[in-house]
Amino acid sequence: MKILIFACKWCGLIGADGAGKKRIQLPPEFRVIAVECAALVEPDAVIRAFASGMTGVAVLGCHLGGCRFNDANHAAIKRLELLKTLLDATGIGGKRLLISFGTAHEGYQYAEVVKTFFEELKTMPSTVAWTASL
C-alpha cells in the first residue's frame, strides 16, 4: 500500500497535526506533501504519483467557501473531479483519487479520512501487476 497525500497547509496539514497531538494510530504507509493551497496540486503531479506506483492519492483542502484564497479551491475541485473521470478512462480508477474538501481540518476527521481511504483501497485490485511491468 502506497498512499500519497497532498494536504493544504490550512486544513489537511492542521488535521494531520491534530491527529498527531491526539496520538491517533494510523497505518504508516502514507506520505504527506504540504501545499499552500489545494489549488497548487497539479493534475500532472497526481498522474505522476500514480505512474510512480502509488496505490492511492488524496488531496485534502479547505471546505468550499472557507478557502483563504477566495475561490481557489472551487477551481481545484473542478479540476480534480475532471481528472477522476480521466483516471476512470485510463483504468487506474477514479476511486484511487480521494478529493476531500473540508473534512480533514480536525485530528479525528483527518484520521477518519485516511483510515477509510486505506480500507477502500484494500478492496480494490492490486496495482502491483501493472506498476511492475512499467
Binding site: R23, L26, P28, V32
Partner: peptide, 21 residues
C-alpha cells in the same frame, strides 16, 4: 520535516514502518 506529529506519535505501534517513513 514533521517527524513527531506526523510520524512518531501516530505510528507508535509500527516502529519499523515509522523509521522507514
Amino acid at each position: 520535516v514533521d517527524l513527531r506529529e506526523a510520524c512518531a506519535w501516530i505510528h507508535k505501534d509500527h516502529p519499523e514502518g515509522a523509521t522507514e517513513k
